[in-house]
Structures are given as C-alpha cells and as structure tokens.
Design a protein around this nucleic acid. Structure first.
Lengths: 260, 260
DNA sequence: GCTAGAGGACGGAGGAGCAGACCTTTTGGT
DNA sequence: ACCAAAAGGTCTGCTCCTCCGTCCTCTAGC
C-alpha cells in the first residue's frame, strides 16, 4: 500500500539546488562559542569602548541567559587574548583593554567566503536603508550627523574612522526599530572588519565614503528610499571592488556573468 | 595601577541601545531543533514534494553533519506529526506525506514578531534582487518564467500558487550564487508561510502579485537594479499591509513615524 | 577593621550529541 | 526458493557542554 509515486528524480548528483541548502550541515555553536564571538566582535568593533566596564559577571550571565561558568570561559579567553582586563576586589570588574591586540589575520574561512560576507552585508544594509526611510525619526538621525562630522575630522586616524563608520551603520539599523536588523548589521560589520583592516584606505577614499554617508543620511531624512538604496549600493561597492582586486576569486559561482 | 577611566556611563537604565543587542540572550538551538525546523519548513514550503523520498538516514545524517540518533529524533517527530511516512525494508525509506496535516496556527512568537519577520524578508529579498541583477544568467531565469506561467494558470489553487511563489523567490535567490542568501530566503519564506496561509487571497491580489513577479523578472533580466528594488518593495508591501490590518501592532517600536 | 562587591575556583548533576553495534523488515537478484 | 542488500528501528555507553551552587580571595569604602 505504500509504493508511492516515489522519486526517481535525478540520481543524487544532479539534485535540485534547493536541496543542497536544505541538507547542508547543521552546525550549532555552543553557548560558549557564541558568547565569545559576540563579546569579541563588540570589542573589535568598538561598541564596547576601551576602558569601559562590562556588567558584573553575576549580572551579565543573567542577561545572556547562560550560566556564570560558561560566561567565564568566554571572559577568560578574552582576557588571555588581551581584549579584556579583569580587576578584582570591590569596585573592580571586567574592563575593555585600552591597548587592543592588533587585529588578527582574517581567518581562512573568512577569506574564502568574503564574497558571501559582502552579499550578506548588501542585503542587510539595503533593508536598513529602506526601513530607515520609513521609520527613522529626527532624533534617530541626529547622532548620525555627528558621527559624520567626527569621521570628517578624524580622517587621518583610520581606526577611529572605522569605529565611527561602524557606529554609523549600526545606528542607522537602530533607527529601523528592528532588533533583528540591528543584530544582523552588527554581525555583518564584525565579519567585514577583519577584511577591511587589511586593505589600504587612502584619504580620498575615506572622504568619498563619508560623502556617501552624508548623501545616505540626507536621502533617509527625506524618506527617499530609491536614492537611499542606490547610494548604499555605491557605498558598499567601493569596499567590494577593492576586495575583488586583492583576493582570489574563491568560489565557483562568481565567474557567472549576465549575458543579456 | 588599574583605576581605569572607568565607566560611569549611564546607570544601566539608559544604556546605549547597541549594548542591549550585544548583551541579548544567547540562545543556541540544539542540533535536533534546527534539524526539525529545517526539514519541517522544507516540507511545508513544498521544497520537498509530497511523495518524494528523503535520502537514507545513514546518508542524510552524514550530510547534515549530525549523528543518526539525533537525525532520527527529528524524523520521528515529523512522522508523528504526519509530515513524513517511514517505510521499512529494502526499497523503503522516509517519504514526504501526500496528505499534509493542515498548517498549524501561527505560533505566538511569530504573531508577536510578524513585523520583524517582514523586515527580515525585505532585507533578504532586496539583496537578492540587486545581486540577481548583476549575476543571474539566462539559464537561471528561464525556469522562473515557467513558474510565473504556472502561477497564472493555477491562480484558483492557492496552495499550489503559494508553492510556486516560494519556488520563484528561492529560485531568484539561487540565481545570486550566494548560498547564504538562499538559506536566508528559505528561512524567511518559512517564517512567512504560516502567516500568509491565514490571510485572505482574493483572485485579483494574486494576479497583481504575479504581474509584479513578471516585472521583477524583467528588471532582473535587464540588469536594472533600481527597478528591481522598487518592484520588490511594492511586492512585499502588499503582504505587509494586509498583515498590518489584521494583526495587533505588537511591538512598541512601530508607532514611530517619520516627522520630516 | 569590617563588610560589601567584585572576580576566581571547584565539583557534581543533567542532558545533548556521538559512535557503533545489532535487530527487523522487505525486496531484488540469482 | 533462497540469500544478500538496503532500508528503518533499537540499544548502550561514552564524552562534552552546561548548569547550579558553594566557597575562596581580593580590594575599596565606611
């Protein structure tokens, strides 16, 4: 009574592409790994400013929804890698190191998947751009103007510029009111930052980049989604072209070209 | 020697918003949960056609990178819920049920977070639209034309229409060559499908929706990113407006309006 | 000096996941 | 008619992650 219409389909090799996605490896990070990455990224991005203090362990583990011992694994690792400093005693705490260890070399996986990382960034930032046009309030955008000025002023100091750049993009994401997009924007910036720190940033490039920030903000302020989108695309393409020139065209997919 | 510049900052309550993201709960799904969701979604979306056979357990667990016992937990759950049928003996296997159990009521979390789900969909689909414009080949787009025809023909059969709709959007994602976007598109469709199945779909709406599909495909074929984006925004707004009318405006964030 | 508030260190309990062997049911081939 | 192959179904023991609770140690402020 079974003998279903069954599936000869195509013998495994020529499977429909969507199935390769469905059956792709399921890799669930451990709580420790995710915590380490979250905190590490936040530090590297400058979201946690050097010298600032993290919440006490007993409070933080509650917020993160993990056991204190698990949190401590991550903290200990970050202390050993020099990103954090632990100070004992009353009034002590865990502090972000003021002399960050130089950015690690981009990991092999990241280099191999840099195009995917850029693609993901494009998607997130476009969503942010459009939604910010609909939802951002003046109050949301004001601090972003200040960031643009700060970037203009600190154009010689690349780490500082980059930090403000990250804050700008994440700030725009916050203006959408979507927690998920904020998280995605943060993650995406984290993925890019190791790559970005390894490419040249001539003054003119940074200046132009910041002009684009201003254009973007103007478009968002005016609620002009079309302009925000095209500006964002250009803005992101800058990084991408540089990377494309430097890095091996890793995957097989991008030799494809549109033939129309 | 410590006594860092420390962080009075703002007493916890008025914390910078980005920190709430960083310190948000870290909830890593178990391998079992993720597998269950992946397979369940694929079935509900029709990516695994009714009657089709899954790879043998011993092969599938290898592909998913999990132990067979873990895989079986998920399979057993799906058998019990009626999504799958298990057939023993040589030539047997695990088959997608031909009489799917009616779509479950949208879960409470989904209803609460429907706007976030729509936001995520917007981001993913915009990224897909833009990248497809750059990268899609004629061969990628051909099957999508067929899907549009199929939707036109089957406009009276909503489940069928919806299935082709999903395949269209995922197919477009595949045309970008970005595995990550394909996965994201699949996930996003899965999140929407429960919601969508609970709203009305008058014939005219579906027809117009499919006209938008055609416009979209035309724009992508011409490599016209701006038009692809604006078409996609309109296309997605359709669903969103209907949902906004039906569902309580859950979160606090969306009472915000742009005051410019 | 004492106490409060911080990091630091164990140790045991529970559960998820893994690995591998084995059983049972069918079917296709010889 | 048989047997071997291919599938799902079962069981057991191990490992590692995570949790919880407890206690220790340091330090600043009163």
């Amino acid at each position: 009574m079974n003998a279903p219409t069954a599936t000869p389909a195509s013998a495994n090799g020529g499977e429909h592409p969507s199935l390769t996605t469905i059956f792709a490896p399921v890799r669930s990070q451990t709580a420790f790994e995710e915590t380490l990455e979250r905190l590490g990224t936040a530090i590297k991005l400058g979201l946690l400013e050097p010298g600032s203090r993290l919440p006490a362990e007993r409070e933080l583990c509650g917020r993160l929804g993990i056991a204190r011992s698990t949190l401590r694994q991550a903290l200990t690792a970050l202390v050993q890698s020099g990103h954090l400093r632990a100070v004992r005693g009353r009034g002590g705490g865990t502090f972000v190191s003021e002399s960050p260890p130089g950015a690690a070399d981009p990991s092999a996986e990241l280099l191999a998947g840099w195009r995917e990382a850029c693609d993901a960034r494009l998607a997130v930032e476009l969503g942010v751009a459009v939604l910010a046009c609909e939802r951002a309030t003046r109050a949301d955008l004001e601090p972003l103007h200040e960031l643009i000025e700060a970037m203009d002023a600190g154009i010689e100091d690349f780490p500082g510029y980059r930090r403000d750049d990250v804050l700008f993009h994440i700030g725009l994401a916050e203006a959408t009111g979507s927690a998920r997009l904020v998280a995605a924007a943060t993650e995406v910036q984290g993925a890019m930052t190791d790559l970005i720190s390894y490419i040249a940033h001539p003054r003119e490039v940074l200046e132009w980049s910041n002009v684009q920030h201003a254009h973007l903000l103007q478009a968002v302020g005016a609620g002009d989604a079309a302009r925000a989108v095209s500006t964002m695309i250009d803005h992101l393409a800058g990084t991408e072209h540089v990377l494309a020139g430097l890095l091996p065209a890793a995957t097989s997919a991008e030799t494809r070209r549109h033939d129309a």
